[in-house]
């Protein structure tokens, strides 16, 4: 069919538009020549310089630590917040959701500036200020992952456990947590990647000397062509890709298991 073939071509073109630039970047990260257009042979030397640069290594460490810590803190606060919000009356519930939405709707640049104005008054700019900023924009994502799960959950199981003599903490750990696990996991993953991805808010709240991968790449590419940055970008690309594939496979496995459990 003619129409279907044209449709396929269109979809392929859109996918090409999305991936071609990244593919070129990855190809150039293996290019021995510093030029962007001349192929000087295959090399891994940019990857080697990457791991020899202490600035890059420390940026990788900062980025991962920041993403892990901010996602973990956001998950704890977000989980307790979700439980509390879930128990609220309709009016309070709506007020809480309104405030939860502020960091999501607001422009990153305004959030970043607002936090910076606050930090310069009360705490030094550095790792801890960036951490607080990341937790702030991560909590809403966690809440939006957990709250819908709470709403579709069967609360009677929890009440049954309580009636049978479980303490509320024991029932919470044994009944609620397993049910909420997919939501908590999704929230953690989302918070982790949002933190890894963020540039603008980090840029305004970091002090001198602290660099995440985003701010490092931004600083370096403004100085000129840096093939190490292509290598770094390619690494980031593959890390995220692998993470997404793992998350999807495990999510599918869980789904299969719960489908089986339903029979």
């Amino acid at each position: 069919m003619m129409g279907k073939a044209l449709g396929k071509i269109y979809i392929v073109l859109v996918v090409l538009f999305m991936y071609a630039p990244i593919m070129v970047l990855i190809a150039l990260s293996f290019n021995a020549s510093k030029s962007r257009v001349i192929w000087g042979g295959f090399t891994l030397k940019w990857y080697r310089t990457l791991f020899e640069s202490s600035a890059i290594i420390s940026a990788i460490g900062t980025t991962l630590l920041l993403a892990l810590l901010s996602a973990a803190i956001a998950c704890i606060i977000g989980l307790t917040a979700s439980l509390g919000i879930y128990a609220m009356k309709k009016r309070d519930y709506k007020i809480m959701l309104f405030f939860t939405n502020i960091p999501l709707l607001n422009a990153d640049i305004v959030t970043g500036i607002a936090l910076m104005l606050w930090f310069v008054k009360f705490m030094p700019l550095g790792f801890s200020s960036v951490l607080v900023a990341h937790v702030t924009f991560n909590i809403p994502y966690v809440i939006l992952c957990i709250l819908p799960k709470l709403e579709t959950m069967d609360i009677r199981q929890f009440e049954a456990a309580r009636d049978l003599g479980a303490t509320s903490f024991y029932a919470f750990v044994k009944i609620l947590i397993p049910d909420l696990m997919p939501g908590i996991f999704a929230g953690f993953f989302m918070a982790f990647t949002m933190s890894m991805d963020d540039f603008v808010i980090t840029y305004f709240t970091k002090g001198p000397g602290v660099n995440t991968l985003s701010t490092l790449i931004y600083g370096e590419i403004r100085k000129g062509i840096k093939p190490e940055m292509y290598a770094l970008s390619s690494l980031l690309f593959f890390i995220v890709l692998i993470m997404l594939i793992i998350v999807n496979i495990s999510a599918r496995d869980n789904k299969d298991k719960s489908d089986l459990a339903a029979y």
Partner: peptide, 15 residues
């Protein structure tokens, strides 16, 4: 690509 670092994507376009 939504999950890819956005500075990285701008760098690719610049290239």
């Amino acid at each position: 690509p939504m999950w890819m670092n956005f500075i990285l994507r701008i760098l690719a376009i610049q290239l």
